[in-house]
């Protein structure tokens, strides 16, 4: 009996870890959205150099977010808008995959 309890606690901790990670990713996504909006607003009056710098930055940030999401998908969770955060039932998801292979 003790064994199951121990395993449950471990599982709970793991899930809590994942949930915390989702929260972080969500915050990251919000931050990206905000950043994106700000960039759009500024876009009209920036020099090409500034533009390049900002775009590089954005690409780097997006890359990180992408990696995190890809990892989440690998660990068995949906990252698509249809079922975001829900566990996958082992099979691949068309909507997640489209998101992963956008670029």
């Amino acid at each position: 009996m003790k064994k199951i309890t121990t395993r449950l606690i471990a599982l709970e901790e793991h899930l809590q870890g994942l949930l915390a990670e989702i929260e972080l990713l969500k915050m990251e996504a919000y931050a990206l959205e905000a950043e994106n909006q700000r960039l759009r607003a500024q876009r009209a009056n920036v020099t090409p150099e500034e533009m390049n710098r900002v775009e590089d930055n954005a690409r780097m940030l997006q890359g990180e977010g992408y990696d995190n999401l890809a990892r989440l998908y690998q660990e068995g969770f949906h990252i698509c808008h249809v079922h975001f955060g829900q566990p996958r039932t082992g099979e691949e998801c068309l909507f997640c995959m489209t998101f992963l292979h956008k670029e």
């Binding site: 249809v82 079922h83 099979e91 691949e92 998801c93 068309l94 909507f95």
Partner: peptide, 12 residues
């Protein structure tokens, strides 16, 4: 016109 679509997220 009209398009019909069905999916279970594994095929469409």
């Amino acid at each position: 016109g009209l398009r019909w679509v069905a999916t279970d997220t594994h095929r469409l």
